[in-house]
């Protein structure tokens, strides 16, 4: 579904991302882990054509993202709060995105029904604009916005951060369920190793802009990852 070739991003002579090649097949739940500054958001921004690569290319379903806009039809994303329209109510925001993806109001309402647990009664029909919601609730609205219309590719940057534990569990359930029933490709980044190993079938570790590990998730994955991220620290102790 997504294929990356020789992708390089350089800021002020520092290479922040360098990926010679990466293939993400259709329907895979792809997890991206790494420390701060490892290049996770940079990679997602490149896939969404929000920044320009210095060399190489990203193609989404065969479409090179910085040459044609056609990939936008089947891609949904939530990176940060700049994906929210603050002066709309959550409903209006969902309808807006729904209309752009060819869904009418009742389609959207039907789709939203499955998220009533996640919303916990704090999002819909609250007569509040998104800008007045709490950080966590804004995040919920943004994530659900990215799911509307079930695009074939869904990109979520740090979806678990800022959410309360209950919501984190619910969100994990939703992602797993959606990934299983439909042929949706999920791209998820996180600092949280446990969440990522639970949700994703494949995990890639980014370190200083380069892929250092690429593993299919199994029972040993979490241990392997924990060992990787605590390596230096354990030696010091």
């Amino acid at each position: 579904m997504i294929s990356i070739e020789n992708l390089k991003k350089i800021y002020n002579h520092v290479t922040v991302l360098n990926i010679p090649g990466l293939q993400i097949p259709t329907g895979q739940s792809f997890g991206l882990v790494g420390n701060n500054g490892a290049g996770k958001t940079t990679l997602f921004s490149l896939i969404l054509d929000l920044i320009a690569p210095n060399s190489g290319s990203v193609s989404n379903n065969g479409i090179i993202v910085n040459q044609s806009e056609d990939w936008k039809r089947f891609t949904g994303a939530f990176i940060d709060e700049s994906f929210l329209i603050g002066y709309l109510t959550p409903e209006e925001y969902f309808y807006f995105i729904g209309e752009l993806r060819g869904l009418n109001k009742s389609d959207v309402n039907q789709f939203l029904r499955q998220f009533s647990d996640l919303f916990n009664g704090e999002i819909l029909n609250k007569r509040k604009y998104i800008r007045d919601l709490s950080k966590g609730n804004q995040k919920k609205a943004g994530i659900v916005g990215a799911l509307i219309g079930m695009p074939q590719v869904i990109i979520l940057d740090e979806p678990f951060a800022n959410l309360d534990p209950t919501t984190q569990y619910r969100l994990k359930g939703i992602i797993r369920e959606l990934a299983a029933q439909k042929n949706t490709t999920f791209l998820i980044s996180s600092h949280d190793l446990i969440h990522t190993t639970e949700v994703c079938s494949r995990i890639v570790v980014l370190n200083k802009g380069e892929i250092t590990k690429d593993i299919q998730t199994n029972t040993e994955t979490l241990k392997e990852l924990e060992a990787f991220f605590s390596k230096g620290i354990l030696e010091e102790v």
Partner: peptide, 14 residues
């Protein structure tokens, strides 16, 4: 400007 990244990644033509 506040949500330009959204506008740029949604199914929107210039």
């Amino acid at each position: 400007s506040a949500y330009y990244p959204l506008m740029m990644s949604q199914n929107i033509r210039y």
